[in-house]
């Protein structure tokens, strides 16, 4: 469902050109569980942003769900992100002045879904991530693990086909980190494509397909190992 062909991404930093992605090709099928690992500056976050349609390749072809997305307009990509892609960040990125419910509702608000439908969807998902009794708390009143679970709820509320997680446990203690990973894996079991970028070798190893990157290239694509 995700096809990258000969992708180059070149940043200009001052006078220098940084080749963040260098002739990268990658195919990801629906329902895969994928980890992307590599040292800092290896281009893994750039790759994730590119897959998430937040960034544009300098050259190359990107096909998402059989749709060429490199030529889409800004608004079309926004709609695709909203409906098909969920983001999970290392630092949660919750809006501090909104309650847990309101944070989870944000994508639906942007999509113009009326509040009655939002309420039923949110209450269902709050049960799924085990935060029903923290629904009206602000982020500052929640623990790190709870905040990340709110973020997961927000990323999945639109029932996307892909979930992109950038160091999802990077800011959590091991127990709550484990909770978060289990929720993500459970979502993958239900059919969502899960792509995790991480430094953490143990977390990376849990994925069914481990990709290692250095200098903007994939050096190891450990295909489909049995679980």
């Amino acid at each position: 469902m995700i096809q990258l062909q000969q992708i180059h991404r070149i940043f200009k930093v001052g006078d220098q050109q940084v080749h963040a992605l260098n002739d990268l090709s990658l195919t990801i099928n629906g329902g895969e569980y994928l980890s992307i690992m590599g040292p800092s500056g290896s281009g893994k976050s750039t790759l994730l942003n590119l897959i998430g349609l937040l960034d544009q390749p300098t050259s190359g072809e990107y096909t998402f769900n059989n749709q060429k997305v490199t030529t889409l307009s800004d608004d079309q990509k926004a709609v695709l992100r909203r409906d098909q892609i969920g983001f999970i960040f290392q630092f949660f990125h919750l809006v501090p002045r909104l309650t847990a419910i309101e944070n989870i509702e944000l994508p639906m608000v942007l999509a113009g879904i009326p509040s009655t439908e939002r309420r039923t969807r949110v209450s269902r998902i709050l049960d799924a991530v085990g935060l029903a009794e923290r629904a009206h708390h602000k982020p500052e009143q929640l623990s790190g693990g709870q905040q990340q679970r709110v973020a997961i709820a927000r990323a999945t509320i639109m029932q996307p086909s892909v979930l992109l997680a950038d160091e999802p446990t990077g800011n959590l203690d091991s127990a709550s980190g484990n909770d978060v990973v289990e929720i993500l894996e459970a979502l993958n079991q239900q059919g969502i494509t899960l792509i995790i970028v991480t430094h953490d070798a143990a977390l990376g190893a849990r994925a069914m397909r481990e990709i290692k990157m250095i200098d903007g290239r994939i050096i190891d694509d450990g295909h489909q190992k049995p679980r």
């Binding site: 998430g52 937040l54 800004d74 608004d75 926004a78 709609v79 695709l80 992100r81 909203r82 409906d83 983001f87 990125h93 809006v95 944000l106 994508p107 942007l110 999509a111 927000r154 639109m158």
Partner: peptide
């Protein structure tokens, strides 16, 4: 700024 980035990641259009 990071909130703006978040809104865009969640599917917010520029006009929104």
């Amino acid at each position: 700024t990071s909130e703006i980035g978040l809104l865009r990641a969640l599917g917010g259009k520029r006009q929104q």
